[in-house]
Amino acid sequence: MDRYRAGPDGFPATIAVETRSVGRSVLAGMDRISAPLAIRADDFMRAATAAFFVAIFAVGGVYLTPDLQTPSELVSWAQLAIAAGIFSRKTMPLSALGIIALWLVALKDYDVFHLLDYLALGVGVAGYLLLASTDNARWHEKRFLVLFWGVTIALMWSSLEKFAYPNWFYPLVEEKPFLTFGIPRDIFIPMAGVAEFTLGFGLIWTPLVRRLSAVALLIIFTAAVYPFGRIDLVGHAMIMAALILIAVDPLSKRAAPVPRQPAAIAHARSLAVVTMSLALALVAVSSSYWGLHATFYGANGRATAGQISTHTYSPEHPHGPGTPAISKPDPQAHSQ
Score class of each variant (00 low, 15 high):
Tyr4Asp: 11
Pro12Met: 01
Pro12Gly: 00
Thr14Pro: 04
Arg20Thr: 11
Ser21Leu: 14
Ser21Asp: 15
Gly23Leu: 00
Arg24Asn: 12
Ser25Asn: 10
Val26Phe: 11
Gly29Asp: 13
Asp31His: 02
Arg32Ala: 13
Ala35His: 10
Ala35Asp: 13
Pro36His: 05
Leu37Gln: 03
Leu37Thr: 02
Ile39Ala: 12
Ala48Tyr: 05
Phe53Ile: 08
Val62Cys: 09
Tyr63Ile: 03
Gln79Phe: 03
Gln79Asp: 09
Ala83Gln: 03
Gly85Ile: 00
Ile86Asp: 04
Ile86Lys: 02
Lys90Gly: 10
Leu94Ile: 15
Ala96His: 04
Leu97Tyr: 04
Trp103Met: 12
Ala106Leu: 00
Asp109Tyr: 00
Asp117Val: 01
Tyr118Gln: 02
Gly122His: 04
Val125Pro: 08
Leu131Trp: 06
Ser133Trp: 06
Thr134Met: 06
Asn136Arg: 15
Glu141Pro: 06
Lys142Arg: 15
Phe144Asp: 08
Leu147Phe: 04
Phe148Pro: 02
Phe148Tyr: 10
Val151Tyr: 04
Ile153Tyr: 06
Phe163Glu: 05
Trp168Asp: 11
Glu175Thr: 05
Phe178Met: 09
Gly182Ser: 07
Ala192Lys: 00
Glu196Asn: 09
Phe197Gln: 03
Leu199Asp: 05
Phe201Ser: 08
Gly202Gln: 00
Pro207Gly: 07
Pro207His: 07
Val215Lys: 02
Val215Met: 14
Phe221Gln: 10
Tyr226Gln: 14
Ala242Arg: 03
Ala247Val: 12
Ala247Ser: 13
Val248Ile: 10
Ser252Arg: 12
Lys253Met: 12
Ala256Ile: 02
Pro257Cys: 04
Val258Gly: 00
Arg260Asn: 12
Arg260Ile: 07
Ala263Cys: 03
His267Phe: 15
Val273Ala: 14
Val274Glu: 10
Thr275Lys: 13
Leu280Asp: 08
Leu282Pro: 04
Val285Gln: 02
Leu292Cys: 10
His293Ala: 07
Ala294Lys: 10
Phe296Tyr: 13
Gly301Arg: 05
Ala305Trp: 06
His311Asn: 14
Ser314Leu: 01
His319Ala: 15
Ala333Asp: 13
